[in-house]
Design a protein around this nucleic acid. Structure first.
Lengths: 243, 243
DNA sequence: CAGTGGTCTAGACCACTGC
DNA sequence: CAGTGGTCTAGACCACTGT
């Protein structure tokens, strides 16, 4: 692991352990460089990483401050698949209600960038259909498709836990980035039953495509959230690049 | 403007002008450094910026690739307030239905971090209530509160255009970061009328707090989106910092 | 193994804040 | 004006990809 990442982790731990709140000041870059015995630029990299994740903000000429969110009960949308798993203070549990190895249909192929006209390509996907619970309450219904070409093995047992953890830690596959698309929709009868709601109730509908670090998509997911449990937040940082 | 920012802009323009698509390859860092006549590290900074914005992805040992196209008709959530305004290919129009200078109530004070017990502090905010149209269709109802201490002047006329542009370009105020909180809700009678929908219809409800680069919040907004028009996307990048 | 991205250092200079 | 963050350079070395 690069120095700047482990330093970023250490700073994050420092913030959490000392229960620093929003707008509390961190030591200066110079001091941090001395403490960690690295060059100033390495600290700058670590801080840029933390800034990007919404942990801190930096003010030129002044100092480095804790950004700290946030409202309780809101879930970081960019956190969903294990990304930036800071503050994932929730107990997540899963019940698998469908599991199979199947051929990709058109929708799946498009999102996972399969070329269905090629015979020599692996077009099978693991389909995982599960209800996820947060602190014991039904939270969302998730239908995920994992490219077998990239995820060679998956089982119902694994799917009942954290698939993300299995992929990144056991298979040692590097997850790179994800695209999330979402909108509001109305519940179908089936989804309503799983979520203890009524047909036609509003719902939060999310589609995600996850990619490896080399740009290959390996997971396409469709998730229907319980509208009373699903409260999200996203932290944005300006980039000077507008216009 | 820093070199790496203008280089990032140039690269983005290059991608757009040449209509590069997802997974197309960019010149190597070395080549870019020669072309722009800067040090390799400056190119690295520019590319990191573009990566953070979801424009490209980098593969070690291989090259730099365009991350590219999102689905059409989806709006970048982090784009809403002028952030990363790449691909803002929409015509946005506004009709002001309420405008006043008022005292902050508790909710506003909390979000803008006013200390209401202090007599010497400016607690007034500009309240802007407007309907926003996208390509002529009602898109959302927005109620925004701008801290007068930071935004000294605002008018109904300005509010009918882009307030963001006014703040950043005319007032020359540096916008730093924003927190977005959202969930699904049901429409009130009033909102339904503005959006040409029915009371009780599902809606996408967003609250945002925008901050200056020095961490001071200056805008608190509550936005109700038309559930058929509001389709969003967010691009996430993994950070190696999980767990 | 040649080419490419990723990290790190040492040092310089600049822009800004706050006393 | 001292301190702090922001940018940039020159150069070194490492990790990985693809042929």
């Amino acid at each position: 692991m690069p120095k700047y990442i482990s330093i970023a982790k250490a700073i994050l731990r420092y913030i959490q352990d000392n229960e620093l709140e929003a707008d509390d000041k961190l030591p200066s870059i110079q001091v941090l460089a001395e403490q960690f015995d690295v060059n100033k630029n390495t600290i700058v990299s670590a801080l840029n990483d933390l800034e990007r994740q919404g942990v801190i903000y930096q003010v030129r000429g002044s100092g480095v401050y804790v950004r700290g969110n946030n409202r309780k009960g809101y879930i970081n949308l960019l956190n969903l698949n294990g990304f930036n798993s800071i503050l994932s203070q929730f107990n997540i549990d899963s019940k698998v209600i469908g599991f199979e190895l199947m051929e990709a249909n058109e929708e799946i192929a498009e999102n996972l960038k399969f070329d269905l006209s090629r015979e020599d390509e692996e077009h099978r996907v693991y389909r995982v259909y599960r209800i996820r619970y947060i602190e014991g309450r039904p939270f969302c219904v998730e239908e995920s498709f994992y490219a077998k070409a990239i995820i060679p093995y998956l089982s119902e047992d694994i799917a009942s836990g954290s698939i993300f953890k299995y992929i990144s830690q056991d298979l040692n596959i590097d997850i790179g980035y994800a695209d999330h698309y979402f909108r509001v929709a109305q519940l179908s009868q089936e989804h309503a039953e799983y979520l203890n709601l009524k047909k036609g109730d509003p719902s939060f509908y999310l589609e995600s495509v996850m990619h490896l670090t080399n740009g290959k998509p390996f997971d396409f997911s469709k998730i229907v959230y319980h509208y009373q449990e699903a409260q999200f937040f996203v932290q944005g940082t300006n980039t000077q690049m507008g216009y």
